[in-house]
Amino acid sequence: MSFDRHLAEIAREFPDWTIWRSDAGRWWATRHRLLTEEEREAGSAMTIDADDSEGLRERLLEQQELLPPADPET
């Protein structure tokens, strides 16, 4: 599968992030919003990277687990 397809699949799965691959071949993701102080203290990151698309997906899933569940009333 091409890296463009991997990129598109990850972008669909994680719409709150901008996903890209650097010229050096590393995979990156940056959040679309700033983190709160509490989120930063819990270990959330604004930008993450990985060697490949699967590694980036795993890191994104780890980041999801750090955030509290969304409030259904908002």
Rank of each mutant, 00 (worst) to 15 (best):
A45Q: 10
R26Y: 09
L66D: 07
T74H: 12
A11D: 14
T36C: 11
T30Y: 12
E58F: 10
E37K: 03
R21Y: 12
T30S: 06
L7D: 01
L61K: 05
E54V: 06
D52T: 11
S44Q: 11
P15Q: 01
H32R: 10
I10A: 14
Q64R: 11
E9I: 07
M46N: 02
D71R: 10
L67Q: 08
E39L: 05
W20F: 04
R40P: 00
S22P: 04
E62P: 05
A8F: 13
S2A: 03
R21L: 13
G43H: 08
G43Q: 05
L61N: 07
R26T: 02
D52F: 12
D51C: 15
E37M: 08
E41P: 04
D16F: 03
Q63N: 05
A24C: 06
E39C: 08
W20K: 08
Q64T: 09
D16M: 11
A11Q: 08
E73R: 13
A50R: 03
G43E: 02
R40S: 04
L61Q: 08
W27T: 02
L60G: 01
M1G: 15
P15H: 11
A11W: 13
R33A: 01
E38R: 00
I19F: 03
E58A: 15
E13P: 02
R31T: 10
F14R: 12
E9G: 10
H6R: 13
L35V: 04
E73H: 15
G25Y: 05
A70G: 12
E58R: 15
A8L: 10
G43D: 01
L60Q: 06
D52V: 06
G25P: 02
A45L: 14
R12N: 12
F14H: 00
I48S: 10
E37I: 12
T74D: 09
E54A: 01
T18A: 09
E65I: 15
E39M: 09
A8M: 08
M46L: 11
P69E: 07
R57C: 04
P72C: 00
P69S: 06
D23M: 12
E39S: 03
I10E: 10
Q63V: 06
E54Q: 02
Q64D: 14
R5Q: 05
R5I: 10
E37T: 04
D71Q: 01
A29Y: 08
I19C: 00
D4H: 15
G55Y: 00
S22W: 07
A50L: 10
E73Y: 10
L7G: 13
M46P: 00
A42H: 13
T74C: 09
I19G: 10
I19R: 00
D4Y: 13
L67M: 05
T30P: 06
R26A: 04
W20C: 04
Q64P: 13
L61T: 02
I48K: 01
M46C: 06
G43F: 03
D49H: 14
E38N: 11
A24E: 06
P69L: 13
E37P: 14
I48T: 03
S44K: 02
I10Y: 03
D16C: 12
E58I: 01
E38W: 15
R21I: 02
D71I: 12
M1L: 03
S2E: 06
E39P: 09
G25V: 05
Q63I: 12
T18Q: 14
R31Y: 00
D49M: 13
M1V: 12
E38V: 02
A70C: 12
A11L: 07
R26M: 10
